[in-house]
Write a protein that binds this DNA or RNA. Structure first.
Lengths: 352, 352
DNA sequence: TTGAAAGCGCTAACAA
DNA sequence: TTGTTAGCGCTTTCAA
């Protein structure tokens, strides 16, 4: 083992070894050598040396000099749902395919946190930022704008740059209709038997609720604002809402529209405290797809957001210099009960 | 808006504005000013200016100079399971609490990929690397070692540095026993009715299988190597294994030990193609906890790995200069059917 | 209590 | 076809 094995080789080391100048080495190793008209043979030589000494460019130095970093950021509310984890997984694949590096952070839906994270990412000179599900996208925008950092909104729209979000209104309508159609004509669902739980006062929730209300009115008539129970994106608040409802009405509604899989976990917590019979005639519709949830012992309809499509579209838009601060809608997909869809993990070659 | 609002302020800007030198500004702003005995008033002045001009240190420059970056890496096989996504979530919380920044990447269980990722992370001068579930931890070690990068193994052990992993052997035993005890004394499970599906030839699978076999032998007698069906960590391979078994035996085993929730998704895919009755008398035990899986229409026993404990322990060990390349075992926790445990998302303040 | 100066490793004019 | 040079923004001696 060479004594310098702890020290990484630099272009200067290779410069000495090859007899070329540092700038020549640099050009050869960063791909700009063609337009610098460097002799094939010198390039060859330097590449060989680089290989031999396991040279890899110091990205900090490169970035400091060129004001880039090769890092592309993704700001997520949380990792730990199948929706957001598949977002991270898909994002990573796209970024790496572009020869860049993903840096993913979770801001826990705290606007102040979101801004500070953006600040910090700026200080690393990240090249682009994907703002996903931010509570205050425009606050993050201000930080990016001030730093000249390209950015785009996903999942929850902002008003300052382009946003790629699901068509939550249509999704809400479709899901509501599907829930209602689960019930047979001889024992149809009544308006006071269908409730929406979860979500908060953000764009996604509002749109879903709007779709829910419209479709409910169209199909069942009546309009019960009381049938909306926002609980935030918290499993426990949702659990409490279900408990309260149950206490007051001695049963759950026959049909539930659950605003997000996080809230659905609140339903699970409720379930844990009650016998299976409590859910024997329940129908649930839920935003975001989770494969295990789809096989629960009662019909679960899920709306799967088009994560792959959102990321693809976002990459398209973020490149465009003067994209309007416009909302691009992608249709989510209704998933029938007992459906196991392939996900971002399929196609990975590992099989043991 | 000032014309320079696109340019971030540097210590030189503040140096000019404050009348102090750049090195003084630097010291004030990076906390070393006390030991440089800088006057409180100058410090005050500079801090005020920094605030006013929204100064934030350029991490690339800082890192280039000091060979640090403030980044702590986590290498994950994949994001998109509740086990790994909770790992990412927990890791992030710990890292941020230390005032560092998490950089999370997924290597898709490809040893070559793992090494290249490590190389690349090295080129960003990350300060520490947590190697989680790597297929070839020692390969990654070699890269880290050569770069003088502190690292540690989680989930899957290596032989060169300390590893923090679940006690998969005990976990396998406990889970197997729990599965068997689900059956009543008047219709007990027979040895040929209990199968293990999933996993591959890695440490975790081997240990779980060993625990499975031992406990099965102890409680049911007999030893059927045929009752082990590795499928890799692939939903589809698992699905095919279930299909094959079903075709050959016209039914599933009465009891399944599923090696990972990823393989469980293969069971879901199988389920989607078969009527509910096929699973009416099924008992499943599965490694890794997924809240939705816990409520499926048949008893599902899950082993929850102690993610919080693993991360905590790993942080402890990675600091120690001469930790032995030893395996630290953490007991996983048996989770009864229909249990909704709190996760890393609980305690987040958001509630809408 | 502070400043001057060197240099981390790289890129990109500008010369030659 | 290549070398020289001047930084990118910061930390860190060393000197004052």
């Amino acid at each position: 083992m060479k004594k310098d094995s702890k020290k990484k080789a630099t272009i200067y080391d290779l410069s000495v070894l090859s007899g070329s100048s540092a700038s020549t080495v640099s050009a050869v190793l960063n791909g700009t050598w063609r337009k610098r008209r460097i002799k094939e043979s010198t390039a060859e030589l330097i590449r060989g040396l680089a290989e031999e000494h396991q040279y890899t460019a110091n990205q900090q130095a490169r970035g400091l000099r060129s004001s880039r970093s090769g890092l592309i950021g993704l700001m997520l509310p949380v990792y730990d749902t199948r929706y957001f984890s598949s977002m991270a997984q898909t994002f990573e694949a796209h970024v790496r395919q572009r020869g860049q590096w993903p840096i993913v952070v979770s801001s826990l839906r705290d606007p102040e946190e979101e801004r500070q994270m953006a600040e910090s990412l700026v200080s690393y000179n990240i090249d682009q930022l994907f703002i996903c599900g931010a509570t205050d996208p425009d606050g993050v925008h201000a930080v990016c704008e001030a730093a000249g950092l390209k950015h785009i909104n996903i999942d929850l729209p902002g008003t300052k740059v382009a946003s790629v979000v699901s068509d939550n209104y249509q999704g809400g309508r479709i899901l509501t209709e599907a829930i209602i159609r689960q019930f047979s004509a001889d024992d149809p669902l009544k308006p006071q038997e269908l409730f929406l739980f979860g979500g908060k006062d953000d764009h996604a929730s509002r749109e879903r609720i709007r779709g829910f209300k419209d479709m409910k009115r169209e199909l069942l008539g009546g309009d019960f604002d009381a049938s909306i129970q926002p609980t935030g994106y918290s499993p426990n608040m949702a659990r409490i809402a279900f408990e309260n409802f149950f206490e007051k009405n001695t049963r759950l509604p026959r049909a539930l529209f659950v605003n997000s899989s996080i809230n659905f976990e609140g339903l699970l917590r409720f379930m844990a405290a009650h016998p299976t019979e409590t859910f024997s005639d329940l129908v649930v519709g839920c935003f975001d797809y989770d494969p295990f949830a789809s096989f629960l012992p009662f019909p679960v309809l899920m709306m799967r957001q088009d994560v792959e499509g959102m990321i693809t579209k976002a990459f398209e838009l973020i490149e465009q210099p003067h994209a309007m601060p416009q909302i691009h809608l992608l249709p989510p997909q209704l998933v029938s009960p007992r459906t196991a869809l392939p996900g971002p993990l399929d196609g990975i070659k590992d099989a043991g």
